[in-house]
Amino acid sequence: MTKPTENELFTYSPITERPPIEWPGGARVAVYIGLNIEHFLIDRPSTSIWPGTADLVPDALNHGWRDYGPRVGIWRTIESLDRHGVRASALLNSAAAEHYPQIIKAGLERDWAWLAHGRTNSILQAGMTRDEERRFLADVVDTITDATGRRPRGWMGPGLTETFNTPELLAELGLSYVLDWTNDDQPYALNVPGMLSVPYSVELNDLLLFGKGTTGPEFVRIVKDQYEQLHADSEHGGRVMALALHPFVIGQAFRARYLDEALEYLATRPGVWLTTSDEIAEHYLRTAGERG
């Protein structure tokens, strides 16, 4: 019988037994917007709104739905972020950096944080050998660095995918955190020197919520409920709230008012640190010694 593979990437740590985290200015909840900026190949199946045509080449229905994001949806989303003074944590495919220079320019003007998000969301890296993945990750990081003038500090895999080698290879490239492990409300150290897991969400995520039939008003209520509970939990130490957005979903015209309502709520909460995933990771690493 084959021995089961044990999880050596991180150690179990109940949130009730940790030294409390303190956010800047006495804030109780650190909130960031994970803005997915993705490029999809026209001849590969990927995220679909209608599975009936997903295997066709070209799949005009689903590819067009996805392509609405960089053409239209992201600009509507940027207007909402600007109205409420929110900097995005841009989860950037390196292929998107090459194909959509206007989006890169807009993000640089707004001082976004830039995270590496693979090459394209049409291709996952699962199954790569260590050397293949090392070359792949180096190309992704270098492409984003060249496009933005800033070397990414964080990573989220396409479809939140990794191999067992990914965190270590990312650390070799100078990155310091990943978002792929959505198992906590606080950052925590991985068993890879210098590498953190920072909270992300597949639940508080427009693609998953609206894909299940959530309405706009329900979306706003969910955002409020998430914040209120995390604020209550933060009595015992700071928490992180990640709101995951995809421009081809949240950027649809009939959803714009609900993103505005959600952002207005978050931007006006007492005790909120409206920030980026980079700043959350940096603060956690800088204050680790103070927590013991």
Rank of each mutant, 00 (worst) to 15 (best):
H231K: 07
L266R: 01
D233F: 14
A232R: 12
P247K: 00
G237P: 13
Y265L: 14
E235V: 15
G251K: 02
L245N: 13
G238K: 03
L263N: 11
A232E: 12
Y265K: 07
I250G: 01
D260K: 06
L259H: 07
Q229A: 06
A262Y: 04
A256Y: 09
I250E: 02
L259M: 06
H231L: 12
D233L: 15
P247S: 04
L243D: 08
Y258E: 06
L263R: 07
A267I: 03
H236E: 12
H231F: 10
M241S: 03
A267G: 11
A244V: 15
F248H: 15
L230T: 15
P247W: 01
G237T: 13
L243M: 05
G237S: 10
L263Q: 06
D233A: 13
G251L: 01
S234Q: 01
D233R: 15
I250L: 12
V272H: 09
A244E: 09
A244Y: 01
G238M: 02
G271A: 09
V249R: 00
F254W: 13
A244W: 01
D260L: 10
Q229G: 07
R257D: 12
A253L: 12
Q252S: 09
D260S: 08
L245S: 08
L263D: 13
T268C: 09
R257C: 00
E264Y: 11
E235K: 15
V249A: 00
A253Q: 14
A256D: 14
Y265I: 10
Q229I: 11
A267F: 09
L230D: 12
L266Q: 00
G251N: 04
M241Q: 03
G237E: 08
L259T: 06
A242P: 10
E264L: 08
V272T: 15
H236W: 08
H231C: 04
F254E: 15
H246A: 05
L266Y: 02
L243I: 13
D233H: 14
V272Q: 06
Q252K: 11
H246L: 02
V272K: 00
F254V: 09
I250F: 00
P247V: 05
L263A: 07
A242V: 11
L230S: 12
G271C: 06
H236F: 12
T268I: 07
H236S: 15
A262V: 08
G271S: 10
A232I: 09
I250M: 07
G251T: 05
P270Y: 00
I250D: 01
A262G: 12
A242D: 08
